[in-house]
Simulated assay, not measured.
Amino acid sequence: MANKTVKVQLVRSPIGCQPKHRLSVKGLGLTKMNQVRELEDTPAVRGMINKVNYLVRVIEE
């Protein structure tokens, strides 16, 4: 069984957000606007995405 991945794109700036939310964006590996990262689909990654769902977009393929 292949490892599932999820693509995440940063669509809003974390400037002015809560420090914990900024750390979640950094933990996802997103540093620049419109940057896309392909991450392993784990519960930890899904939790970080849910915490900052107003900053990121999940790209479905």
Rank of each mutant, 00 (worst) to 15 (best):
E38C: 10
L55C: 06
V25K: 01
V11K: 12
A2F: 03
I49H: 11
R57Y: 03
E40Q: 06
V11G: 13
L55Q: 02
T42F: 01
Q18N: 09
V25G: 01
R37I: 02
Q18G: 08
K26I: 07
P19H: 00
V8D: 07
M1P: 07
E40L: 12
L10T: 09
P43W: 00
V25N: 00
L30N: 04
V36L: 02
V25C: 01
R46H: 01
V52F: 11
D41I: 02
P14N: 07
I49S: 02
K7A: 10
L10K: 05
P19I: 09
Q9E: 11
G47M: 04
E60D: 13
G16D: 05
H21Q: 08
K7C: 02
P19Y: 01
Q35C: 08
H21V: 14
A2M: 08
M1W: 06
L23D: 13
N53A: 05
V6S: 04
K7P: 00
R57W: 01
N34I: 03
L55N: 00
E60H: 10
T31R: 15
V56K: 11
R57V: 12
P14V: 10
N3Q: 15
K32P: 01
L28T: 04
V25P: 03
N34P: 09
S13P: 00
M48S: 05
T31F: 15
T42E: 04
K51Y: 02
A2I: 06
T31E: 13
K51L: 10
R46V: 01
T31Y: 12
P43V: 00
Q9K: 11
G16L: 05
H21C: 06
E40K: 10
K32C: 02
E60N: 09
G27A: 11
G47C: 02
H21A: 08
P14H: 07
Y54A: 00
L30H: 06
L55M: 08
Q35R: 08
V11M: 11
H21W: 06
N3M: 08
G27I: 10
L39W: 05
N50P: 00
G16E: 01
K7N: 06
P43M: 00
S24M: 15
M48D: 05
V8Y: 12
V11Q: 09
K32F: 15
R37E: 05
M33L: 15
Q35T: 06
N50Q: 08
M48P: 03
M1E: 14
R57C: 06
A2W: 03
L10W: 05
